[in-house]
Amino acid sequence: MKPAEFFQRDRTWHPPALAPDYKTSVSRSPRLAMLSLQGSMSEITGPTFGHTDIDPIDNDLIRNWAKTGDPVGERIIVHGRVLDENARPVPQTLVEIWQANASGRYRHKKDAYLGALDPNFGGCGRTLTDQDGYYYFRTIKPGAYPWRNWVNNWRPAHIHVSVFGSAFSQRLITQMYFEGDPLIAQCPIVKTIPDPRAIDQLIAPLDIKAAIPLDCLAYKFDIVLRGRRSTLFENRMEGN
């Protein structure tokens, strides 16, 4: 069978490896050019996941680490679709998220920020998209937090998002930001992305229609993975 490849990743849309205002990138970015490969079986396949891998409560961050009651903070739903660049839904794909609590503190043994831990909040969740590529989580809106880059840098409120797609070459980790947050424009990590339209793609709008009255606000965050091209008229592929 003929492998159907993915659209080339637009490396001018993504952040470059070296972005000096994000200091850690200086020593962790390759200096030499990447080797561009056409897709082979090794790239167009990837791990698959099913409902035996995860539990239904895994997408509810308000309940999945609750010990003595609900966590403190702004109750929100984060929902959206995983699509490809052809706007086709990506079904049955694993979406994983992680985040700080309402104080901007992470439940991680390496986080020493003085913002308080919440005994009822873990900060991670995962789910599989349905047949329409739809996913949802319930969580607490994370707080901003300081980090050692310049001396007074603060990350905007954000949720880290990891998605698989159907192929290892679609693998993506990104961050979701919240509409209206004034820290977005100041953040050296956000600004590693050169194109303001690409930054806008990571900002989730308030979705008041999806809010649950008297209970929970909602933000909508669609995720786009690489699209796949048709192999029209292609009997023999050129190159490698």
């Binding site: 659209f7 990743r9 637009d10 849309w13 993504h14 952040p15 994000y22 990138s25 699509l83 490809d84 660049e85 052809n86 706007a87 994983e96 998220i97 992680w98 992470y106 439940r107 991680h108 390496k110 986080d111 873990g122 900060g123 991670c124 995962r126 880290h160 990891s162 993506l172 980790i173 990104t174 961050q175 990590i189 956000v190 590693t192 992305i193 339209r197 690409a198 930054i199 793609q201 990571l202 995720i223 786009v224 993975l225 690489r226 699209g227």
Partner: peptide
């Protein structure tokens, strides 16, 4: 009408919490 791929961001120092 192609969509653009969501731009990547660093996994950050606390990637283990999620993954």
């Amino acid at each position: 009408n192609y969509l653009k791929e969501s731009p990547s961001q660093t996994a950050g120092p606390y990637v283990h919490i999620g993954l």
